[in-house]
Design a protein around this nucleic acid. Structure first.
Length: 872
RNA sequence: GCGGGCGUGGUGGAAUGGUAGACACACAGGACUUAAAAUCCUGAGAGGGUAUCCUCGUGCGGGUUCGAGUCCCGCCGCCCGCACCA
């Protein structure tokens, strides 16, 4: 055994080769063992992997390798989310097709991922931009269409003026496009929609069963779906029947406050508003103003509540002879409920603001507990908490909940326009998912438009509808639409001329089912239902929390749609979800204000002060805040360089140590060097152990002495703890346990000379187990050590070390002794020492005797095997 | 505004209501070396006594408990999500 330093540059490619030749990580669908499907969110092929990928895939790989060692049939695949705008924008810049660009990126990122030594089944690799993937997506689209899960409708949509495409509601963040950051405009277009809102209730209820999801994500989805139960209430028109309308539908969750109603408000987009505006130029102007303001949410937020008083009035539904004015108000959304509301200013802040502005009545009808009915007035704050109904005739004295029921029942009995005046209605915030994108680089929607036969799906036998690659990006807009011939086709029904749909699908469709495709990536149908039902749901899915709503909600809907159309057997795609934190780094700025790459920075440490200067020029630099790694701030570290300098294992180890995986981790040079030192430390320990073995091969190993037993206990305890931490995805704690075990083994190896013949086996066994438990995290190092220790075969194929339960318990334990809750001493006793014996021993302790000063303790709390507290 | 999370040494962070600060990074001192790197050993929450002892200490203020970083109530600060949703 040589004392040479471990050389990852040499060993890492070697073991990657061995694993590859051994086909160590190929999952077989006919393998009868228990299955485990671990998946990390697949990357967008931007060209280079970043540290966020390293962290994400290191975590997934630990689980994959751990569960494989547990004897499971592990599926750990990788693919590429390859359609999308960056490729198209790059193509426009370079005037070349996104296809070759994307495929090149995939090739180089694949090599980078392989250099990380991930235990991935590369035979299952898929790329969403290839026809062998997207043709199945087109087949799914056709099935969904036939099953009534897709509609085509004209509606207001979010238009991103920079990316020149439509966006789904989920893709509009703070009124801006999620990708371009441009303020989103409203446009009316005919678009394809997935009817996700049909599943709103089911998607909401399903969240309760997702026990292995972070509560935070479940909450975000709950809020996004936004279920609210209320009443659809009809207000009879008193004045204004010349419009032809005889009533206005309103949605409310507070029918209990109906006696406090003082006005009605219509959305500027309400059909009745349009009708009125046709003959009322002032109203038309008002509506236009609302629209010009209404493009960005920011503007909305600051916008004052404004209204326009129409000449319409409605009958108050419960106060005989009273009428209410009808306004058009800028704060009423056409999207939600019925696009019309009744205002009860006393109990809704927004209504109150409006009422104060237009001098409308404020009639309180909910009395706070303990308040005086005569003296209760509303000032500038609406009262929206619990109370008793008053000023409300037949509802008086009821609680809010009871009054809601009573009012609901009351209106259900009455009729307006031959309809019940009130019907229970449930509203959701969730809108249908608009998937049409006016972009080239996406999955073509498999539909044709025929003048005679209408819009119809492409027959499945004609799939795939291939995305042509001979397109030009000379003009702005959708290159597919500009293609000279592609969109011309013939109608398969009448044989006449027809036009292909030139919109492509939102790329979130691509990522909504890739996890299912991985279970049988060569199947001639979208899935092999047998394989899909065997593997799904994914046992552990890992990715960034930024997908908490978009991708994860779409995938949950899509899985249900696939279930309905017979492609999968489950409703929920991901049994366990883990959202990992980001990778951050310090930022550096030059005197001129330019960001500077960490590789160009030299950090100097003077005691506790750190200063930075530019490598080469020695120009002083400012050390800035710690932020998420981003190209714009240049605080990025290239994984390739780290792998070349320290090796993949070091990068993986560092990513897993220190910070809890769900939190952000700060990348530091010092941290990486620490990880690298640890790698060498393990290697030295293995070298010493192997050398001791070699020197002592003629020695007859004697029975364990006391030290050896201690060492075995330490080992078994550590293995037990590490297994537990890995299963719970607490990798930082697993790492800490590994450090402790290593420290113990290094110490033991150092004092071996004293009695090698009775400790050798315990040491060798301990070091071997150490190597096994670090294998999921530093797989290359582990293989090298495994071989150096003289083990046959690969550690990647070795079963996880078993733990001897008898070694986990100590016979002798130390019990802390407290006086008044403060630790004052300890007791060394045998495990299971009974209460009475403990009491006697505690009372004879020097400290206790001294502190008691001859008096008896007030109280003695004894928890056997745990703690003793003496109260004096 | 609504909802959720977090707050512990110089730093990242440990701690089923039971010895606060595991483990690591950084730092200081020492050993080895011609020297450096590497490695090994030692120290360290703060303050005092300088021995093995005492006091204070987990954002702030209360409470429950024999015992609270942990549970409850009220504040302060930071982060995230949603936001005119009737």
């Amino acid at each position: 055994m040589s004392a040479e330093r471990y050389n990852p540059r040499e060993m890492e490619p070697h073991w990657q080769n061995v694993w590859n030749q051994n086909q160590s990580f190929i999952a077989r669908n006919d393998d009868p063992r228990e299955r485990y499907y671990v998946l990390e969110m697949f990357p967008y092929p931007s060209g280079r992997i970043h540290m966020g990928h390293v962290r994400n895939y290191a975590m997934g790989d630990v689980l994959a390798r751990y569960h494989r060692a547990q004897g499971k049939n592990v599926l750990h695949p990788m693919g590429w989310d390859a359609f999308g705008l960056p490729a198209e924008n790059a193509a426009i810049e370079r005037k070349q097709n996104p296809g070759p660009w994307t495929r090149q990126n995939i090739a180089s990122m694949r090599e980078q991922l392989k250099s990380m030594g991930l235990s991935i089944d590369w035979t299952r690799e898929i790329a969403t931009c290839e026809p062998d993937y997207y043709q199945h997506q087109q087949a799914l689209f056709i099935d969904f269409l036939a099953a009534g899960l897709i509609t085509r409708k004209k509606s207001k949509v979010n238009w991103d003026p920079v990316d020149m495409t439509v966006l789904a509601n989920e893709q509009v963040i703070d009124g801006k496009g999620w990708r371009s950051g441009a303020p989103v405009e409203q446009r009316e277009l005919t678009q394809w929609f997935f009817k996700i809102s049909d599943y709103a209730d089911e998607l909401l209820a399903g969240l309760d069963g997702l026990e292995q999801w972070p509560e935070k994500v479940r909450l975000m989805q709950r809020n996004w779906i936004g279920k609210s139960e209320g009443l659809r209430l009809l207000f009879e028109i008193a004045q204004g029947s010349e419009t032809g309308a005889t009533s206005i539908d309103v949605f409310t969750t507070r029918p209990d406050t109906i006696f406090g109603a003082s006005f009605l408000a219509l959305s500027p987009d309400h059909p009745l508003t349009g009708q009125l505006a046709a003959t009322d130029p002032a109203l038309a102007t008002f509506v236009d103003e609302c629209h010009s303001l209404g493009t960005s949410t920011e503007a909305l937020e600051k916008a004052e509540k404004r209204g326009y008083l129409t000449h319409l009035t409605v009958k108050h539904p419960v106060i005989e002879g009273a009428t209410l004015p009808v306004y058009v108000a800028n704060f009423v959304l056409m999207d939600y409920g019925t696009g019309a509301v009744f205002g009860c200013p006393a109990h809704d802040q927004r209504d109150l603001d409006f009422a104060r502005k237009y001098d409308l009545e404020v009639n309180p009808v909910v009395l706070p507990p303990g308040a005086d009915a005569a003296g209760f007035v509303i000032a500038n704050e609406a009262y929206d908490e619990a109370g008793t109904i008053f000023n409300s005739e037949f509802l008086d004295g009821l609680s809010i909940e009871d009054a809601k029921r009573a009012a609901t029942a009351f209106f259900a009995e009455r009729t307006v326009d031959g309809r019940p005046q009130g019907t229970v209605e449930i509203n959701f915030r969730l809108r249908d998912w608009g998937i049409s994108r006016q972009r080239y680089w996406g999955c073509p929607i498999p539909v044709i438009h025929c003048e005679v036969c209408g819009t119809q799906p492409v027959p499945k036998k004609d799939l795939p509808v291939i995305l042509p690659e001979d397109v030009s990006f000379d003009q702005p807009g959708n290159a597919l639409d500009h293609h000279p011939t592609w969109k011309n086709t013939t109608c398969h029904q009448c044989g006449g001329a027809a036009r292909r749909e030139t919109d492509t699908m939102d790329t979130f469709v691509d990522s909504s089912w890739y996890f299912a495709r991985f279970t049988a990536p060569q199947a001639t149908t979208p899935t092999d239902p047998k394989a899909a039902s065997a593997w799904l749901p994914v046992d552990q899915y890992i990715g960034g929390v930024e997908h908490a709503i978009l991708h994860l909600l779409y995938s949950r809907f899509f899985t249900r749609a696939m279930q309905k159309t017979g492609h999968v057997a489950v409703a929920e795609p991901f049994k366990g979800l883990f959202t990992q934190g980001m990778v951050t780094h310090e930022t550096y700025k030059s005197a001129a204000g330019d960001w500077v790459l960490p590789t160009e920075v030299l950090i100097e440490v003077h005691g506790e002060k750190r200063t930075a200067k530019r490598l080469g020029t020695d120009a002083p630099l400012t050390i800035g805040s710690i932020e998420k790694m981003s190209k714009s701030k240049k605080n990025v570290v290239d994984p390739d360089e780290i792998v070349a300098t320290y090796g993949a294992d070091t990068a993986r180890w560092f990513m897993l140590s220190d910070s809890p995986p769900e939190r952000d981790v700060q990348w530091t040079e010092a941290g990486v060097e620490g990880a690298s030192r640890f790698q060498q430390r393990v290697w030295r320990l293995v070298g010493e152990t192997a050398a001791l073995n070699e020197q002592s091969k003629d020695i007859v190993v004697k029975k364990d002495d006391k030290e050896a037993v201690v060492l075995r206990k330490t080992t078994h305890r550590a293995v037990h703890a590490i297994s537990d931490e890995i299963e719970g995805l607490r990798f930082n704690r697993a790492v800490a346990q590994v450090y402790e075990l290593t420290n113990a083994l290094v110490r033991a190896a150092g004092v071996m000379a004293a009695a090698p013949e009775s400790r050798l086996d315990a040491l060798h066994d301990g070091v071997s187990r150490l190597v096994q438990v670090i294998a999921p995290m530093m797989p290359h190092l582990a293989e090298t050590c495994w071989a150096a220790l003289g083990h046959q075969g690969l550690v990647a194929d070795a079963p996880w070390p078993e733990v001897d339960p008898s070694l986990l318990i100590d016979d002798e334990i130390i019990i802390p002794v407290q006086i008044n809750g403060k630790r004052r001493g300890e007791l060394n006793v045998a495990r299971g020492t009974p209460r009475a014996d403990l009491e006697q021993q505690v009372l004879s302790l020097d400290v206790i005797v001294r502190m008691l000063e001859g008096k008896a303790p007030k109280k003695l709390v004894i928890v056997p095997d745990r703690i003793v507290n003496v109260v004096i």
